[in-house]
Lab assay of single mutants.
Amino acid sequence: NKFNKELQWATWEIFNLPNLNEEQVKAFIDSLRDDPSQSANLLAEAKKLNDAQA
C-alpha cells in the first residue's frame, strides 16, 4: 500500500531529524497517524522546522 510505505518513510525521517525536540517529534508522528495521506506535507513541515531550529 502506497500510503503505508510513505507513512513508514515519513515516520523514520521525522524520528531522525536532529533539531526537533521530543514533543515536536511526537506531535508530527501523531499527525501522521491521524492522516497518513498527509505524510509528504507533514514531512516537509517537519524538515522546515528542523532547519529553522538548526
Rank of each mutant, 00 (worst) to 15 (best):
P18M: 09
S37K: 08
K47M: 07
A27F: 14
V25I: 09
E22P: 13
S39T: 12
S39P: 04
P36D: 03
L7K: 02
L49T: 06
L49D: 01
N50Y: 01
Q53M: 10
D30G: 09
L7T: 04
L32E: 00
D35Y: 07
K48N: 08
A46N: 00
D51A: 13
K47R: 12
L20E: 00
A54Q: 13
A40F: 08
Q8E: 15
N4V: 07
D34Q: 11
A46P: 00
F28Y: 07
S39D: 02
L32H: 01
R33K: 12
N4R: 04
Q8I: 12
A44G: 07
S31I: 10
L20N: 00
K26H: 11
L49P: 00
A54W: 06
W12T: 15
W9D: 15
R33D: 13
F28P: 00
F3V: 14
Q38V: 06
K48V: 08
D34Y: 10
D51I: 07
D34R: 12
L20D: 00
N1V: 04
E6F: 11
Q24A: 02
E6H: 06
K47V: 10
L20Y: 00
D35V: 05
N21L: 09
A52G: 08
A27R: 12
S39I: 10
Q24S: 02
S37H: 07
N41S: 14
K5V: 06
A27I: 12
N16F: 04
L42E: 01
K2N: 15
E13M: 06
D30Q: 11
W12G: 13
W12I: 14
V25L: 06
L17M: 13
W9P: 02
K5A: 07
Q24T: 03
Q53A: 07
W9R: 08
E6I: 10
P18Y: 08
K5R: 04
I29L: 10
T11R: 05
N4Y: 14
S39Y: 13
F15D: 09
F28V: 02
F3P: 15
Q8W: 14
I14G: 02
P18L: 08
F3G: 14
K47N: 06
I29R: 02
W12Y: 11
N16D: 05
N50K: 01
L20T: 00
I29S: 03
S37N: 06
N50W: 01
E22D: 14
Q38Y: 04
S39N: 05
L43P: 00
A46V: 02
A54R: 09
K26G: 10
A40Y: 11
L42F: 09
S37Y: 07
L17A: 01
S31K: 07
W12D: 15
L42H: 04
N50R: 01
T11N: 03
